[in-house]
Simulated scan of single mutants.
Amino acid sequence: MVSGSDTGPAPAPRALEARLVPTLPPAARPAPSTGPGHTRPPTLEQRLLARRRATLAAERAARAAEPPRETAPMPDPTPVCCALALAATEALRGTRSVAQLARWVSPQVFEQLAARTALTVRVLGRTAATRRPEILRVRVCRLGEHIAEAAVVVDDGTRVRAIALRLEMWRGAWRAVAFEIG
């Protein structure tokens, strides 16, 4: 006995039929409720924006309540002028490294000083340090609250040099932005 599901001829394939679906208008969105329990919670961006606004408002209120602070007067540039003139003179003599001036001068001035020092030491050689250079005269002229120009006369033992420099306030300290050594 043969068991099988073939009991008769196979059914004929059905032809594909297209069914039409009726077109519906788009569903209307429900209006947002205005009641207390039916609001959407604020997004993270909305909460951050509200916090920033509150912080700024509190800072403005605190500033309005405080009396205006007086800014501290800028320090006198004369000691910086003298120290820079002495250090540059010592660098030209070869008794001080030019790298020690890097913090107190702009990058352009540092490059000029380094080139002049290298040339002077190469041509004249390092001079024996008989005595430390001394400042004979200093004239400082403040051109503004953050700008000063100075003329310094330095005796370095073998010659008397005139040094002109321009200082500008940079990050709370005086820094030379122009430097000429005679």
Rank of each mutant, 00 (worst) to 15 (best):
residue 165 L to N: 03
residue 182 G to H: 07
residue 33 S to R: 05
residue 96 R to H: 10
residue 114 A to I: 01
residue 171 R to C: 05
residue 92 L to I: 01
residue 3 S to G: 07
residue 111 E to V: 12
residue 132 R to E: 14
residue 153 V to C: 01
residue 151 A to Y: 03
residue 158 T to N: 09
residue 19 R to C: 13
residue 171 R to K: 00
residue 48 L to E: 06
residue 98 V to R: 05
residue 29 R to L: 11
residue 64 A to M: 09
residue 83 A to N: 13
residue 51 R to M: 10
residue 110 F to N: 04
residue 154 V to G: 00
residue 41 P to Q: 07
residue 147 I to D: 13
residue 163 I to C: 06
residue 75 P to C: 02
residue 23 T to N: 12
residue 93 R to P: 06
residue 179 F to I: 00
residue 16 L to A: 08
residue 126 R to D: 12
residue 179 F to T: 05
residue 157 G to F: 03
residue 62 A to W: 10
residue 95 T to A: 10
residue 55 T to L: 03
residue 124 L to P: 13
residue 1 M to K: 00
residue 25 P to R: 00
residue 100 Q to C: 12
residue 10 A to S: 14
residue 72 A to F: 00
residue 121 V to T: 11
residue 7 T to A: 07
residue 134 E to G: 11
residue 147 I to C: 11
residue 146 H to N: 08
residue 135 I to L: 05
residue 167 L to M: 07
residue 12 A to C: 06
residue 85 A to E: 07
residue 111 E to Q: 11
residue 101 L to S: 07
residue 17 E to Y: 02
residue 155 D to H: 05
residue 170 W to Q: 03
residue 114 A to N: 07
residue 18 A to L: 09
residue 145 E to H: 05
residue 165 L to S: 02
residue 132 R to Y: 02
residue 173 A to E: 13
residue 89 T to L: 02
residue 181 I to N: 06
residue 131 R to S: 13
residue 27 A to C: 10
residue 112 Q to S: 11
residue 53 R to I: 05
residue 52 R to K: 05
residue 45 E to R: 12
residue 124 L to W: 10
residue 18 A to M: 07
residue 121 V to C: 06
residue 100 Q to G: 15
residue 165 L to P: 04
residue 44 L to A: 15
residue 49 L to C: 11
residue 57 A to H: 06
residue 25 P to K: 00
residue 45 E to S: 14
residue 55 T to P: 03
residue 75 P to I: 04
residue 59 E to W: 11
residue 13 P to M: 00
residue 60 R to E: 14
residue 77 P to V: 01
residue 1 M to D: 13
residue 72 A to Y: 06
residue 149 E to C: 02
residue 102 A to E: 14
residue 76 D to A: 04
residue 103 R to H: 13
residue 65 A to D: 13
residue 100 Q to N: 14
residue 7 T to Q: 08
residue 2 V to W: 04
residue 27 A to G: 14
residue 90 E to F: 03
residue 174 W to C: 01
residue 137 R to S: 15
residue 148 A to M: 01
residue 135 I to P: 04
residue 136 L to W: 05
residue 84 L to P: 08
residue 91 A to S: 14
residue 30 P to K: 01
residue 7 T to P: 15
residue 14 R to E: 14
residue 159 R to H: 10
residue 168 E to F: 04
residue 134 E to Y: 06
residue 125 G to W: 03
residue 87 A to L: 09
residue 3 S to D: 10
residue 37 G to K: 03
residue 147 I to F: 05
residue 113 L to D: 06
residue 55 T to A: 06
residue 115 A to W: 03
residue 87 A to G: 12
residue 70 E to R: 13
residue 158 T to S: 12
residue 14 R to T: 13
residue 139 R to D: 15
residue 73 P to D: 07
residue 99 A to T: 14
residue 93 R to K: 09
residue 31 A to H: 08
residue 1 M to E: 13
